[in-house]
Design a protein around this nucleic acid. Sequence first.
DNA 1: TTGAAAGCGCTACCAC
DNA 2: GTGGTAGCGCTTTCAA
Lengths: 349, 349
Amino acid sequence: MRATVKDVAKLAGVSPKTVSNVINGVVFVRPETRERVEQALVELDYVPNMSARGLRNGRSGMIGLALPDLLRPYSAEVTHLVVELAHRRGWGVQIEETAAEPKREFELLSKARAHLVDGLILNPVNLDDSAVMTAGPLPAVVLIGDVDQDMVSQVAIDNVAAARDMTRHLLDQGFRRIAAVGTPEIPSGSSGTGRIGGSTDAPGTAAARLRTQGYREILAEAGIGPDRELEIGLDRWSPEGAAAVVGRYIDSHELPDAFFCFTDTIAVGALSALWTAGVAVPGDCAVAGFDNIGESRYTVPPLTTVDFDRRLFVESALDLLAERMSDKDATPRRVMIPHRIITRASTAR
Amino acid sequence: MRATVKDVAKLAGVSPKTVSNVINGVVFVRPETRERVEQALVELDYVPNMSARGLRNGRSGMIGLALPDLLRPYSAEVTHLVVELAHRRGWGVQIEETAAEPKREFELLSKARAHLVDGLILNPVNLDDSAVMTAGPLPAVVLIGDVDQDMVSQVAIDNVAAARDMTRHLLDQGFRRIAAVGTPEIPSGSSGTGRIGGSTDAPGTAAARLRTQGYREILAEAGIGPDRELEIGLDRWSPEGAAAVVGRYIDSHELPDAFFCFTDTIAVGALSALWTAGVAVPGDCAVAGFDNIGESRYTVPPLTTVDFDRRLFVESALDLLAERMSDKDATPRRVMIPHRIITRASTAR
DNA sequence: TTGAAAGCGCTACCAC
DNA sequence: GTGGTAGCGCTTTCAA
């Protein structure tokens, strides 16, 4: 059986309290006592029982991270950073995926209230049916990504501005017929899902709406009325979906000057579809992405995209979370992370 | 304050034990009693305290997942599957990244012994300095990937055979000068890391060794003596590293007929470097990968690669883990997952 | 500075 | 079928 504080105390000839003091190092312990205790700790190979500590302290030392789709490279980057930066604060990370079933988000909040995690970083699939909008006391939660609310703290980028910037870049390059890939899917009879009205459950719906807005605004300002024929909806932001949809699109429409894809992952699918169709990028048609995932430098051709400091993004989320965890009643804050356009070969003229 | 079983019991007019029985639904409870208790549970919005339950039961309901590099798409796929399939068994998943510092692996084992996780799925960076080789009682651990040991259960693919198969495929396509990208780096003065002798800490070192072995075997069998000039080492299996190394390689060597990249991620970097250098794939030179990550269908051109059933892989790991968790003394088992070559345009003739 | 004892919330054991 | 009680391992009062 594993050693407990009691065993250690007995071996060291002190009380459990003293052992606890040594372990947590908060109050002063006489050096010789400390020495004896530490020897006993090593000798018995003592490992604290986190369940007991958690029960006593009301904190588990873990945070939850919930992302819609763990397969996206973007998710991998966020996860990587959260794990690294949380580790520095002494936090473990429990990970969840929410896109599969909306129920998951509720389960997660439950877990938080069950003291399994002390806080939660949540990238909601869709705020409208997000669990955070439920009445009832929330645990410490920070939203990341693209939502519009003021109930909980949030870190995000300015999606509208970023989409404006990218669209402007494409116009500046001389492109006129600019398609957008990843615009919100309007549930219709043809989708076959049977949903009527209401919001779609496409991942990143809020982002889709905001990026579409920025895209349209710039086209309007340039006097190029937005053309709904150029807005290509996508029910899931994956290369599979994008390749299929873009492939069908170019089969049945005149080739646009450029495709503004709402994520790099979409752009990967678009590049693939264009290559398959024998369309040269950037010769015949330009492609731009969004997020600047690591792979976007290594696509063929390299991808023009929207970049933001992901480390700052995650660090800010953890800062906000720490704030909430130490003071449940702190006013929710919103942190905006700056973005910029990275120009690569895919939109060269 | 949050409601406890005691509060619920009082409200329902029963004892805490009965509440517990209702919650865990193991023994039979009279329907009307059950009804009263359930009403009280809802009314008080009861959420069980997992720390207390964990302390009492000695199990946390969580498993740990430790991967060397969370940024790799391969890691994202494994994580996605582990989260999904563990969820079905009622397990949460705590995630860790081990490549950054070897110390992490020990911390993880510690966490396991601290009852923070009930079991561990571990993809060791390098078995030689892996924590599992340490003396001392191990928690329930299953290794995934490419190691050679029999201390703990393991799920893997036959790397040697897979590399043989891929190399044979390339030979069958008529390629003769076949380069391998990702062979083990021999620490040398030029690496600048200051390491001398011993094993490298490159991720996937064991895989690198085994795949190199299969590659050499087939070349030898074909009477094409392996040529060390064609074995391209890599200190990290990333697109960045691969693009840089392959770029330098083709600048200073005659172009091989084909590049056998030891992961798809490496192949992505290689494709990028070749594109940058104006080398047509598959026209001037073929490229093959390994792992069949989702993106490999959407590279330009699509990638020939080694595929294996990742879901089966992860499910097997969880099966083995469940086995170990229920019986610490079960004999360690090894499960091999079959593989196959997926032929795509990148190695067309 | 250290010891004794209580209690965090839950469930297993033993009565009834 | 249900209730009382003890105890998981830890930390935190309060005393010494």
